[in-house]
């Protein structure tokens, strides 16, 4: 552990400021709270929002897990894990159920979260209405007046263009019947997991300097139309080629030599746990 830094890299004042913004975010589910995003040893847009939340919350007894698009071992996840454990000395894990603090880039783990856990999501674009209205002043007004026709309009445009809602990720949700929120670019598959989740979900956007939250057991509804209902990605008749699971989010991989398409678990630690539980053949 590197003791030349204060515990968890930040000075205590910074951590307190971020926690204060976090508390406000929890008090107003789905509302984007501005905060003084710090300079970090990693570039903005590489998870600084999530990292700042993690560092402000982490304590000696926490067990940390970091995921990057479902993987525990990708560069981004490994580096964030290194930074946090180097400046705190906390235990890191790959097992979702063992972790108390999970920082994730664009996935909610397959293993259901519990009320002992906090999920921190990294957010590139926190404003769900940004494409519809470029001005921050205006979008703030729209949120204040609960004027969300723009969010539905964007989905309507997709239906007109592509014949269906075409959000690959980041399908907007209505939180607690009040704020429309960008769920960070998690796949639609993960949207229903946000509804009434037992864990506290925090979302941090470092570049855009916003923090927002979905407190435990909060109602989260994905936006849709009466005749075009929200639908998660379906992997009918597909299963993970490694562990054989079917009801999980699968990556589609194309073998360029054989032109064969194969599917495999996106959540690597869940896949590994599944394999270990059946035992090696």
């Amino acid at each position: 552990m590197n003791t030349t830094y204060n515990f968890a890299f930040f000075d205590e004042g910074s951590k307190r400021e971020i926690r204060r913004a976090t508390l406000k975010a929890i008090a107003i589910p789905g509302y984007q709270v501005p905060f003084a995003s710090r300079e970090m040893p990693i570039g903005r847009g590489w998870g600084t929002g999530g990292l700042q939340l993690t560092l402000s919350l982490i304590g000696m007894k926490d067990v940390l897990k970091v995921i990057d698009q479902g993987s525990d071992e990708s560069v981004n996840a490994v580096n964030i894990k290194k930074l946090v454990s180097n400046t705190t000395g906390v235990e890191v894990t790959e097992h979702t159920s063992k972790a108390t603090l999970i920082q994730s880039r664009h996935r909610i783990p397959e293993v259901p979260l519990t009320k002992e856990q906090i999920l921190v999501l990294q957010v590139p674009l926190p404003e769900p209405l940004r494409y519809y209205e470029p001005s921050e002043t205006e979008t703030k007004k729209l949120h204040a007046e609960k004027e969300y026709s723009g969010a539905w309009l964007m989905l309507f445009e997709q239906i007109m263009k592509y014949g269906g809602m075409a959000t690959g990720a980041d399908h907007p949700v209505l939180v607690h019947d009040r704020y429309v929120m960008a769920p960070s670019p998690i796949p639609r598959f993960d949207n229903p997991k946000m509804n009434a989740n037992e864990a506290l979900i925090l979302l941090g956007a470092g570049r855009e300097k916003k923090v927002y939250a979905v407190p435990p057991y909060t109602k989260v509804v994905s936006l849709d139309f009466e005749d075009y209902l929200f639908q998660a990605e379906i992997f009918a008749d597909k299963h993970c080629r490694i562990c054989g699971q079917t009801d999980v989010f699968l990556d589609e991989l194309v073998d360029e030599l054989t032109d064969e398409t194969v599917y495999q678990c996106n959540d690597t630690s869940n896949c590994l746990e599944k394999l270990n539980s059946v035992g090696v053949k």
């Binding site: 004027e147 026709s149 539905w152 005749d227």
Partner: peptide, 13 residues
């Protein structure tokens, strides 16, 4: 549609 959605419509067809 923007105006229709704003006036409370939620049926694409």
């Amino acid at each position: 549609a923007e105006k229709l959605i704003a006036a409370g419509n939620n049926h694409v067809g």
